[in-house]
Design a binder for these strands. Structure first.
Lengths: 148, 148
DNA sequence: TATAAAGTCTATCGTACCGATAGAGTATAT
DNA sequence: ATATACTCTATCGGTACGATAGACTTTATA
């Protein structure tokens, strides 16, 4: 399950991308437009800033901005930073591998084998999709506007 | 994350498959060989029985058996029954779809779009892999024996 | 038919994490 | 100066997870 934190982070990033403009957007505005609890969103945006995905400006006229080209902000990075490794099981993780203490032979473990396939499939999607690409794809796929 | 319950269930099923023989296997034996807390495993096996994946025999000489051909026991079914839908987000689930209350237009939602891709990729692996097939694939891939 | 073996059921428990909120502190544009 | 906004620390209720205890029921077989 995607946590609310990760979901809110993605929604906020997408909103910032759509805003474009180079002007900072206030937390309060993002919270309202994306229907995210403001205090909760504060913590999320701060994390994204520490990670170098967002930058911020304090004081009057301040707010948050994308710190990177949206073509270089990948879903995988955001999901991992809030929800941890993509793999369903630590021994199948590429970025945070942990051996199963009780596993005599990983190469022969059926669960490991299948879960590695799941993690690879997931990573292929999330690490292959940037904010910019996703937005383009959605535009291409359907017609209309909105969020979720 | 795959829950311990789902992981233990899969390991137990694979052990039962490997056991073959048509003879029932005691909970205690499974617990020991797979290193699963016995009482915890009891509840898991019971769930698998209620689901029709296992059958059991009470009393002396009793234990658990696969109730179905392992070519027809899919990872997807087991994972879903313990951990719920595969989709990272309810609005991307095929088997347990729930609309986002605050989403004006799902077709335009970027998060929805990408998470649907994740769920499809995951489902393709887990619903396309049976116990029997997974075991064969592992045999084909590496050499050795063990569990994890 | 007694008895030991083995599955079944109900109840409970501690911990950790999640989602959310409060409130004080700090920087900055005007 | 001062209002505006981000930043930090602390806290809180709820829920789900992993696990365990103990009593109950069924069955093979001696």
């Amino acid at each position: 399950m995607l946590s609310k934190k990760a979901k809110y982070a993605l929604k906020a990033l997408i909103a910032l991308q759509e805003h474009g403009s180079g002007q900072p957007v206030r937390i309060a505005d993002l919270a309202r437009s994306e229907r995210i609890p403001k205090k909760f969103l504060e913590a999320i945006l701060l994390d994204l800033k520490k990670r170098g995905i967002l930058s911020s400006q304090k004081g009057k006229g301040g707010g948050y901005l994308l710190a990177r080209d949206p073509r270089r902000i990948y879903f995988g990075e955001v999901v991992r930073m809030f929800d941890g490794p993509l793999a369903p099981v630590p021994c199948a993780s590429q970025t945070a591998y942990v051996r199963c203490a009780d596993c005599p032979d990983e190469a022969a473990c059926v669960v490991h084998f299948v879960m590695k396939e799941v993690r690879d499939a997931t990573a292929k999607v999330l690490d292959g999709t940037s904010l910019a690409l996703a937005a383009r794809r959605v535009e291409g796929a359907g017609r209309g506007r909105g969020r979720g």
